[in-house]
């Protein structure tokens, strides 16, 4: 039983990492929309974030998996899960980025523009490196939460850890053992993440040396 359940860990991790990656990239667009100069863009961004955050992830999962199938878009459970969590992650990570941006000196952006730096370079070489230290602890913490949310994928049939534990519980009747195992697995997975979060937190407190 242990082996069967723990094999699901690969999928748990896969879902978590894929969703996080998608969210990390799209989150940039979300943060950009929220801080755009045009008020309409900001408004749409704000509405998008509010709506996504105000509805439980499970509901979005069902909307994507069951609902979109109706209008012709049939996704496998795995695709639906990664898509849904990716969108949700982009909203939360986008807000984390926005918080980091607030600490950034506006002058940096002006100086870069004056030098003629394009937007992509501005983003990757000036903004991202500087706010990375500030936001990385929150990002890791969010990642830990995302891993726990990945358990929801079991409800639409993704055969990850929680799904397998549920299966085992129902077929062998040893529910306590099955869920204790999977619970311990989540706890064990969170240990390296916790250590990573602490390291990120310590590094974020180091001050830049300015000459």
């Amino acid at each position: 039983m242990i082996g069967y359940i723990l094999q699901g860990m690969i999928w748990t991790v896969f879902i978590t990492l894929s969703s996080f990656a998608i969210g990390a990239v799209i989150g940039v667009a979300v943060a950009a929309a929220r801080t755009a100069p045009l008020i309409i863009v900001r408004g749409i961004g704000r509405a998008w974030v509010e709506i996504i955050r105000s509805v439980p992830p499970l509901v979005w999962l069902f909307v994507v998996f069951f609902g979109l199938a109706e209008v012709g878009l049939m996704l496998t459970p795995l695709q639906a899960a990664i898509f849904t969590f990716g969108i949700i992650a982009s909203v939360y990570l986008g807000e984390i980025y926005r918080g980091g941006l607030a600490t950034l000196d506006r002058g940096q952006i002006e100086a870069s523009r004056a030098l003629g730096l394009g937007s992509f370079d501005l983003l990757t070489k000036i903004i991202a490196p500087q706010i990375f230290r500030t936001v990385s602890p929150s990002m890791v913490t969010y990642g830990m939460g995302l891993m726990k949310d990945s358990a929801l994928a079991s409800t639409i049939g993704v055969v990850e850890m929680t799904f397998r534990a549920n299966q085992q519980a129902q077929s062998t009747g040893q529910g306590l053992a099955a869920f204790a195992i999977v619970g311990a697995a989540y706890l064990l997975l969170s240990i390296p993440l916790g250590a990573l979060a602490r390291r990120a937190d310590t590094k974020s407190r180091l001050k830049y040396v300015v000459n």
Partner: peptide, 23 residues
């Protein structure tokens, strides 16, 4: 506290509803 925070709520639900019956 650490278990309550580190284990997904879904699993906690299952533990009480489907796990306890084992004992």
């Amino acid at each position: 506290v650490e278990v309550g925070r580190g284990v997904p709520l879904l699993v906690l639900l299952y533990i009480f509803y489907q796990g306890l019956p084992q004992i």
